[in-house]
């Protein structure tokens, strides 16, 4: 990851997106309720892949923030919302309706404002 802010940002984007999609995949491949459901999720790789991606993202995020100011970091990280949405469309057939896109865009704009403020 060295001292390249672009690479650190890319790592945050990739790990965050993969992690979210892996968590969603984990819930697809599990039967049962409660503890049995968690046992079923723990028995296949998706949940662990998601957790590994989450840890990697955390480290990449710390590296990224050590290279850019917080406001810029938050600004660039909101792109994750778009990639997770796109990934949900491609992998799970989630619909990209105008209202969903508007809602996510409003949230992203809000997160950016809080980060800048």
């Amino acid at each position: 990851m060295s001292a390249n802010p672009f690479l650190a940002w890319l790592a945050v984007l990739v790990f965050d997106t993969c992690g979210q999609l892996a968590f969603k995949a984990a819930t697809h491949h599990a039967e049962g309720e409660g503890l049995a459901r968690w046992r079923a999720m723990a028995a296949q790789p998706w949940l662990w892949l998601g957790i590994a991606a989450f840890i990697a993202e955390f480290i990449a995020w710390l590296a990224f923030l050590s290279l850019v100011p917080l406001a810029e970091g938050v600004l660039l990280a909101t792109l994750n919302m778009a990639t997770v949405m796109l990934g949900g469309r491609l992998l799970f057939g989630e619909r990209l309706t105008p209202r969903r896109m508007a809602g996510v865009a409003l949230i992203a704009a809000g997160v950016i404002l809080v980060g800048v403020g």
């Binding site: 992203a108 809000g110 980060g115």
Partner: peptide, 24 residues
């Protein structure tokens, strides 16, 4: 004020998502 405006936008966005989920 920027942070408060941002918070208001986030809440609005979530209400939009909730409305979309309710309707379709």
């Amino acid at each position: 004020p920027l942070q408060l405006a941002g918070a208001a936008l986030i809440v609005t966005g979530i209400l939009v998502l909730a409305g979309a989920e309710r309707d379709d």
